[in-house]
Amino acid sequence: MTEILHIHPETPQPRLIRQAVDVIRQGGLIAYPTDTTYALGCGIGEKDALERLIRLRRLDDKHQFTLLCPDLSVLAVFAKVDNPDYRLLKAHTPGPYTFILKATHEVPRRLMHPKKRTIGIRVPDHPICQALLAEQGGPIMTSTAHLPDDEFPLTDPQDVRDFLQGQVDLVIDGGFCGVTETTVISLADGTGPEVVREGAGPLDAIF
């Protein structure tokens, strides 16, 4: 049975945020709103939750996973960043961007790209996300709530509840989200930004 929590999108209730993070800490898989679309999340070391997410989205072994981070203070722990790239990240976080970077050994191998050894880093501009991360005290593994047979990711909280009932442990209903996923920029090669996916974040701000 999937638990539903109605959390205010601008002033998240601390008690409900604690309940949601308890689910993550107990190895659960949650669906939650972001500054782009709804997303799926779990603890970064939770193998079973990650495998459930992979089955739910039918992801292949080349999928690039992403860490949802509260800010750039944890960046050096999980990713290798040169100064010019750090300035780019600082200028565009929080916001609707995911940056692909070389991962450090602190990232579980199952979350790294199998060949490139990279990890996505995302700093969201959404009060519920930030409250979850503050309560968690560290990053959360995140993936867009984009079901395999759907053209668009989930953005309507009623759809999130209907389609994910019984497939996730918790749905945070935080109202409607946007329909466009993050813009994904790779900085992994050290040759400047490379567009992997054009999305909600404007490209003219990057180049």
Rank of each mutant, 00 (worst) to 15 (best):
L40I: 12
G199L: 00
A131I: 09
A205M: 12
G178I: 01
D150L: 09
P33W: 02
T144I: 12
T2R: 03
Y32T: 05
D149M: 05
R18Q: 12
R57V: 07
V21P: 00
H113E: 09
L40R: 13
H6D: 11
K90C: 14
D162P: 03
L59A: 06
I17Y: 03
D149G: 00
D61C: 05
D156E: 10
L132F: 08
H105E: 14
I185T: 08
G137L: 00
S186A: 10
D61Y: 05
G41S: 12
L101M: 04
T37N: 06
D162L: 08
V184F: 07
Q26Y: 04
H92K: 08
K90S: 15
F176D: 11
F152N: 13
D85M: 13
P148G: 02
I119T: 14
T118W: 10
L101D: 01
R87M: 12
P148E: 03
P193R: 03
G95N: 01
T11H: 15
V21Q: 02
L170I: 02
D204N: 07
V81M: 00
L88D: 12
R87V: 09
T11R: 13
E106A: 12
V77K: 15
E10R: 14
I128T: 07
K116Q: 10
E10V: 12
Q165I: 00
I128H: 08
K115V: 11
H63M: 04
P127Y: 14
N83Q: 15
A188V: 02
P70F: 08
T144Q: 13
S143Y: 00
F176Y: 12
G178F: 01
T142H: 07
G27L: 01
K90F: 15
G43N: 03
P114G: 14
L132K: 05
A76D: 14
E181G: 02
K116H: 09
A205H: 11
K62A: 11
V171G: 02
I172E: 11
P114K: 14
A134P: 12
Y38H: 04
A79V: 01
I17Q: 04
E106D: 08
R58I: 04
D71K: 11
P124R: 09
G137Q: 03
L164H: 05
P33M: 02
R55T: 00
P84Y: 12
